[in-house]
Amino acid sequence: MGFFHNYEEMAAMILFGIGFTTLLLHKNMIKKIIGFSMMDSAIYLFLAAKGYIEGRTAPIVVDGVQSMEAYINPIPAGLVLTGIVVSVSVTALMLALTVRLYRRYHTLDIDEITAQVRKEEQ
């Protein structure tokens, strides 16, 4: 069965699920951000696993150019790198937001922050 054959993809999907639910449902801001990082990393794992071909190497010229069959497709790796840059900037923005929220409300619990904001308004 493909179940054990595709274990990298399986792991990626499980990690995606964990990250997704943490990002969506956890009350703690830092854990939300960890969830987001896990979710994105899972997608990159999936992509990297899909891009790898058994027995071939990265397309870097060492002993002269070999035939095409010697190399793996470099595009997924390129996409992973681009994706990592995107998630790093988003993570930085989220952390900056969390710092500002913490300075103002002295808690990381988003529900409690919302309650405090409501109180502030009245």
Partner: peptide, 10 residues
């Protein structure tokens, strides 16, 4: 404002 920070987070 406090409210915009929370809004931005959500």
């Amino acid at each position: 404002k406090g409210r915009t920070l929370v809004a931005a987070t959500r």
